[in-house]
Amino acid sequence: MTTLEQFLRAHPDLRFIFTGGKGGVGKTVTAAALAYFFATQGKRTLLASLNPVHSLSSIFAQDLTGGEIKPVKGVNNLQAVEVETKDVVARYRENISRRVREFLKWADIPVDPRPFVDIAVTNPAFEESAMFDKMMDMMVQEKEAFDVIVFDTAAVANAVRLIGLSKIYGLWLSRMIESRKEALSLRVQLAFRKDKVMEEVKKDPLLADLLSMNERFNQVKELLTNGTQTAFFFVTLPLALPISVVKRFITMVSAYDIPVGGVLVNGILDRKVAEASDEEYLRNKFEEQLGYLQTIKQDLGPMVRSFIPLYPQEVVGLHTVATVANDMLHYMPDFWEDL
């Protein structure tokens, strides 16, 4: 087994770290711990939460809300952001609704077109696209300002979407660009003020948006599939459901050529803790855990990078993050070898 420490040593140029896994397995905590670790190594680190519901603030027990990159108090080199998409979504909507209104300039119709336009631009999924957009933004723009960016990619569904998106998004984008170009050339063709329309067309904000998105997308795709710069870490618990999720996930990610950094096993009940008392709870749990760990070893063995023990307290506050970061690199359950 290659430990996390060994892996990181072998990949000194890692710049983009993603964490994924089933909901509730401790992704955000792991992401925070990884970021903390990089920061203490003297690397300028950014921790970005792409969750629709953020929890960085509660994990670090300080206010990181607002969608701005903020320094994490108490750690040098570490900055964090709870990414907000409101502005992107609003801009997007305004942009589209302006385009649509243009077409209705001469429309003398018995209905108010605004609610129609509104409904056309109301879409909960815009937020997801916007989140993806923000992630691309960060990968492209914050590259210089930071040595390492750690993304917490939210619940597995979102992460799947994020990764899935990166494949079909390209298809969708190129079709959008094509349609837009066709639309614009039709406009010029059907205009009597060709030069004026040509000017407008050249400045078309929608096409500009799409093109820049496409450009960023291509850059990001390259970064995402670059094994020396990018690594996806999957977090699991020694439980059946999270394990199968991670397995499915790894298959999928590999299919998209996204480099897998490894599996981090969270919530390990240490033998000493389990045997310190004779409660059925911990004993049974420990027994059960052995079984699941066996599965992990069998199915994901070479991918496992580290273990994080189960703590008696919820991981909240800077010092606990520090503990997790430390354990993540050094804790090794004594029974792993024997499984």
């Binding site: 803790v273 310190a276 008392s277 004779d278 409660e279 709870y281 911990l282 008696p312 307290q313 919820e314």
Partner: peptide, 17 residues
């Protein structure tokens, strides 16, 4: 469980939390 005499520190903490 808290009333159990030899409850492990670990569980005690968790339950209290």
């Amino acid at each position: 469980l808290l009333e159990k005499p030899n409850l492990s520190e670990f569980l005690k903490n968790r339950i209290e939390m």
